[in-house]
Design a protein around this nucleic acid. Structure first.
Lengths: 187, 187
DNA sequence: CACAATACTAAGCAATTGCTTAGCTTAATA
DNA sequence: TATTAAGCTAAGCAATTGCTTAGTATTGTG
């Protein structure tokens, strides 16, 4: 009985995600979203309710996108080597047109910090924690580390990947590889 | 012959810096600066020219403030141990009311990225490079590392401190200590 | 005291923000 | 083919943005 949507929500979300990823939440206006997504503001609000709504769905889209490499990590059986590979995979993942955008989740945590909507913040820290659990799983595969060591090293790995995410915006490839190689020397 | 300023520029800059540090550049409006600095917009523009001008001076104020710990690092003769101490000093430095604000420079790089004013970006990367040089200096004190190793390890240390800076916003003290302790095990 | 140079107050500027709405097209069903 | 529920266009909303300006207050000097 009714007219059909002239866009596919997942498709325009990909574009919205890309824009948020490049510019951050506050530096992305609804007008910019209009242009990037190629649809009118009315359609944006009809589909996603608010700018925050678009952002939340963009986060979900990001999660799906990064799932290819988190899934790979989830399936590895080779301990620390698998985690190291994840670091390299992440770098490749975050690169676009030779420009590193870091991690959308990390960027957002860093931008909004404690000013962020609590629900959003919960969502973001949950993601971070899931990654940490994957690190732990792989660390356990590596022989005789005790619980305490595994906890410490997973915290270390989390700050390392956060560091890589930020550094990727100003460091060149060689410097990032230096960082990764050295980071894994003592694990 | 003329009326006197009713505020001290360095004093109001301290307050501006604190606000930018907490909220980032874009999330800080001139009205917010007015309130925090306790002076009228006219005075802000008379003293600093623009919002960006206030920010640039805030960065300088930040540098002066952090100089107490970079200076300490500059003077240390105890190699890696001195760098590790710097990490702990930084954590203490970035804490305010039990809330970690990270590093103003790192936050800004992360927020503005390649969208930033080139002059500002140059300023920020220069600061990062100065820290890296201090790391190198201390690494050289530690015996028989070759040039290549020192370069690699200084890149590693830079990403580590960046990671600590970001992680400090979501990790608790124990987790951050885990990260630092593990980070220095292989140096 | 009067002058002149600067600072302060507060109102107001155009532009942009997130969001809404009135009026139209579109398309599947009866 | 007429109806009707939904989507689209584009104009417009109040609030906020960075910044300016007109008018007034304060000061040291002649």
């Amino acid at each position: 009985m009714a007219r059909k949507k002239q866009y596919i929500e997942q498709e325009v979300l990909e574009k919205a995600m890309s824009l948020f990823w490049r510019n951050g939440y506050e530096n992305t206006s609804v007008r910019m979203l209009e242009k990037e997504m190629g649809i009118n503001q009315f359609s944006i609000y009809a589909s996603f309710g608010s700018k925050q709504g678009v952002f939340l769905e963009s986060i979900n889209t990001y999660k799906k996108k990064i799932h290819s490499i988190t899934h790979k990590l989830e399936k590895t059986q080779n301990g620390v080597a698998g985690i190291k590979q994840y670091f390299y995979d992440f770098l490749e993942f975050s690169e676009e047109n030779n420009v590193c955008k870091g991690c959308l989740i990390t960027n957002t945590v860093n931008e909004l910090g404690q000013n962020a909507d609590p629900m959003l913040m919960t969502e973001l820290t949950k993601f971070a924690n899931d990654i940490k659990q994957l690190f732990k799983k792989n660390l356990k595969q590596d022989s005789k580390k005790d619980m305490e060591t595994i906890e410490s090293e997973s915290n270390y790995l989390m700050t390392s990947i956060l560091g890589i995410s930020v550094a990727s915006k100003i460091f060149n490839k060689k410097q990032l590889e230096d960082a990764i190689e050295t980071a894994f020397k003592n694990l």
